[in-house]
Amino acid sequence: MKSAGWNRGSVRSTLLRALKQYRSALVLVLPALIGLSVFHLWPIIESVRVSFFDYNLISRVSEWEGLGNYTFAAQDPLFWRTIKNTALFFLLKVPVQMVLALLLALLVRVPFKGVGFIRTIILIPTVTSMVVVSVIWGLMYHPNSGLINGILETLSLPTQKFLIDTGQAMPSLVVMTIWKDVGFNMIFFLAGLLSIPGSYYEAAMLDGANRWQLFRHITIPLLRGTTVFVLITSMISAFKVFTPVFLMTKGGPSSVTRVIVLYIYENAFIFNKMGYAAAISVILALILLIASVIQIYFRSRS
């Protein structure tokens, strides 16, 4: 008992000391914590709760469903199709985007005349609204009067259908989103490259390493942390894709671009199945969580 009392007292005094030491910091972060709780944490908790109900948004009638929405998802072919479409979008987009981002980072790492201008040009799409970008690229992809087909015609090349062709719609979306997001990934790779000490390269060069060996044995291993971070954030971003799909294809043609978040939107606001939409959201969050944990695990092992 004496020991327990001593421990309690010790913990209490430690806590009080910590509170005293960090009270200014706590006061400063409190508004952000409140915002995070109200606008992020609470909706997440609510989504999980609603996923166990059959909830009608308009009437607000909600009936307990248990795991009904989850078992329905497991048997819903449309759900699996949207998962497949989203995975395809991720597989087509993220590897290409990461390689391009790394190459661009390598290009603008070395100071030369005009590097600031090139960095700005690469970053402009990143800071432009996705809505604006989607509308403009939608016009550029127009099969009859779009800029891209205009260029193809000028070059005497066959015109393409882009967004209205089942084989071209997804790649067309991927190209546009890579153009939009590659600058954002480049920033992280650039920061990673600049954090590698120059002495490593100097030592390797003294040992006779060529450029490829420098890149292969110094740059890539030391960028592993950055690469995992970029991969995780890009994967989350790819699985959450919605705006360009909603504005440019509405999931068509023939549902080839119907991605998971669009399906969540349809269930929530068109099919009026808020509980099912919440269940799919939770499944999506779990998929991303598991994938992120796996990536972090392999990174820490290596």
Binding site: E46, R49, F53, N56, R60
Partner: peptide, 10 residues
């Protein structure tokens, strides 16, 4: 919560 028990069922 955003989702409340309805005032009256439909």
């Amino acid at each position: 919560p955003a989702v409340e028990e309805p005032p009256a069922p439909v």
